[in-house]
Design a protein around this nucleic acid. Structure first.
Ligand code: FES
Ligand code: FES
Lengths: 135, 135
DNA sequence: CATTAATGATACTATTTTAGTATCATTAAT
DNA sequence: ATTAATGATACTAAAATAGTATCATTAATG
């Protein structure tokens, strides 16, 4: 069962790379070319995912010559669950079984409540995995 | 983000139906037709999933006239996680990010360890959701 | 101010996975 | 022998994922 999509995966690697190279005091504006050369990822694909991160205010982007991307949030404020949400939507287990007949009173449904709880704790745990914690 | 596939979903509903009708003391061999009529599910699809459950020793099956399926395991011994595993494979979060460069020593990888732990507790929780608990 | 090198936006194609169907073989009751 | 069920497997359709192509916009810089 696949839990993490390619976008999420590549993105996390790119973010770790960006964080580590800006930590080293190097320039913190990095181009897509630099990232994909370093990590061996498909360029056009990566461009699209980084653009999305910029729209979500995780990165800033700079157009034109000498442009590129830089971290907008700090590495400790970007967690795995943020990235999963952006590319894969909310982690929500309650989408759910037994519709209709078996469970007519959705609001009272005990299964739903339990799944919700499980989902919440999963979110919480994944939220602790930040880019900073991977450096 | 979809966590539960159609097979898993339909199957859980079918199992709850089967468990509840055998609980009522009614006959416990039930045909696919009865299940899909009751729950409004696609028949041929359902046949295939129930056959798979039989192969996995969750159901027994009886061929021929008057045949059908019955629960082999008791409702309290069938959990959501069992069914997810059958149709969707293991719930495994460690498939994982940062291959190659960033994380050369796979065995020592702290991220991997943390994801593994999270996956284990998720499994544990989903394991508590049994068919019996949904009756 | 033209050139160059970057991202922004969006449409397109290919691949893989999921969902669902069709069919024939086998089995057991009557 | 007939009928009504599952077993096995191949097939098709639809949706999601992965990846590409292209043109527009922007900013540096000689
Ligand atoms: S099981 Fe789905 S609403 Fe209760
Ligand atoms: S992050 Fe994948 S092995 Fe460590």
């Amino acid at each position: 069962m696949k839990f993490i999509s390619r976008d999420t995966d590549y993105t996390m690697r790119a973010l770790v790379f960006m964080a580590s190279s800006s930590k080293k005091g190097a320039k913190h504006v990095i181009t897509v070319d630099e990232i994909v050369d370093e990590l061996g990822l498909p360029k056009i694909f990566m461009r699209r995912t980084l653009q999305k991160l910029a729209r979500h205010k995780i990165l800033s982007s700079y157009k034109g010559k000498e442009g590129g991307f830089s971290l907008l949030k700090s590495a400790s404020q970007i967690s795995l669950v943020d990235i999963i949400k952006i590319f894969q939507g909310n982690i929500d287990l309650t989408n759910c079984l037994l519709r209709g007949k078996v469970c007519p009173e959705v609001k009272k449904c005990p299964l739903r409540k339990r799944l919700k709880k499980i989902g919440q704790s999963l979110n919480k745990e994944l939220n602790k995995i930040t880019v900073a914690s991977l450096l």
